[in-house]
Computed example of a mutant assay.
Amino acid sequence: MTEARRVRGAAAREAGRRGEVWAALWLMAKGYRILGFRLRTPQGEIDLLAQRGRVLAVVEVKRRRTLEEALEAVGADQRGRLRRAGAALAARRPALRDAAVRLDLVALAPGRLPRHVPDAWSGA
């Protein structure tokens, strides 16, 4: 791997972590409790796991120029993995067994406030 590629990768990872922190703060301001960051499961990695009431939100954080680009950045296969990962986590945690698992998106764009889209792919 070239040095330039390693540096770009490190910068991208750092930007991703900052984006996830911004998304978590945004969700907490909306009344969500953050249960985890970057949770690795056999099904895939969950950027944020958040809860509000009976809703367990599996949150994907995407930084793109527009909301539409952020929504399109998560394909059907990834959505399926995220749904399965959220359901598996909820099944393993007694306090979450009765929670409704939902896929949310927090879209970040330069110069704009975060945009939270609950149940972002309900029609997909």
Rank of each mutant, 00 (worst) to 15 (best):
T2G: 14
A4N: 11
R6L: 15
V7R: 15
R8E: 13
R8P: 00
G9H: 13
G9E: 15
R13E: 12
R13V: 02
E14V: 11
G19D: 06
V21M: 02
A23L: 02
A23N: 07
W26F: 12
L27T: 15
L27V: 13
M28C: 10
K30Q: 15
K30C: 13
G31S: 13
I34H: 08
I34F: 03
F37H: 14
F37L: 06
R38Q: 13
L39A: 04
R40L: 14
T41A: 08
P42G: 04
Q43R: 13
G44P: 08
L48M: 11
L49R: 10
A50N: 05
A50D: 11
A50L: 09
Q51F: 11
R54M: 09
L56P: 01
V58N: 04
E60K: 15
E60P: 08
E60M: 02
K62C: 10
R63Y: 04
R64Q: 12
R64W: 06
T66V: 07
E68K: 14
L71Y: 05
E72V: 00
Q78S: 10
Q78A: 14
R83A: 14
R84A: 14
A88T: 04
A88V: 00
R92S: 15
P94K: 08
A95R: 12
V101N: 07
R102I: 06
L103G: 04
A107H: 04
L108I: 07
P110D: 15
R112T: 07
R112A: 12
L113G: 13
P114W: 04
P114S: 08
R115P: 00
R115L: 14
H116I: 00
V117H: 06
V117M: 03
V117L: 14
D119M: 02
W121Q: 08
S122R: 15
A124T: 06
